[in-house]
Design a protein around this nucleic acid. Sequence first.
DNA 1: CAGTATCCTGCATGATACTG
DNA 2: CAGTATCATGCAGGATACTG
Lengths: 108, 108
Amino acid sequence: MAKKKLQQTEEKCALQEILGVIGGKWSMSIIYALFTGKKRFSELERLIPNISTRMLVKELKNMEANGIVIRKVFATVPPTVEYTLTTKGEKLEPIINELHKWGVEYVI
Amino acid sequence: MAKKKLQQTEEKCALQEILGVIGGKWSMSIIYALFTGKKRFSELERLIPNISTRMLVKELKNMEANGIVIRKVFATVPPTVEYTLTTKGEKLEPIINELHKWGVEYVI
DNA sequence: CAGTATCCTGCATGATACTG
DNA sequence: CAGTATCATGCAGGATACTG
């Protein structure tokens, strides 16, 4: 939204906008976990060390609102919820993978 | 440092470590600005809209400590300081460029 | 010019307990 | 299982004034 208004600033602030979408402390880890396919809520909690329930919920909601993930609910007892990457989210795979490689080589 | 100790967790936490280095609100914008070559402090301030002096100093220090940028001081009056990317920092160019493209296509 | 030094604020994050 | 609700807190980040 507000595409027109953003046009002047988009070059300068694109990176800032992006951080609003995937700049959260856990966003990339969640996306990274979803590269290997759909995951249930509890699976994500187990896959991502030290993340709190609250943060996982929050980031997932934010990412869903931003069209990065899809939330699918199954009317089972107990409830089942699956999270999947959207196409938009999948496009991040090579980028995050490269970033990860960079980190492993230079940061760790 | 602490390469050995990190080995168990490096796979899981690499992305977290990376965010400590380039996850700051302005880090990527600064790196992005430096892709086009060395910049003086005031140039960076002008190139990056809305960044405060305090934050620019802070991020630059952090990035210097992490081997992303080089700070070169010239004993002139008034003082001249130039910031350049290290090789390690330059390796981020394709990654950040791709991320930027992704943002322009999907976020803006 | 290239910073330092303070003060200040809100939000991001965490911990814990509870629920349909 | 997949969350919600609440409380608590630190520090990221901003504003402003000053300096070698």
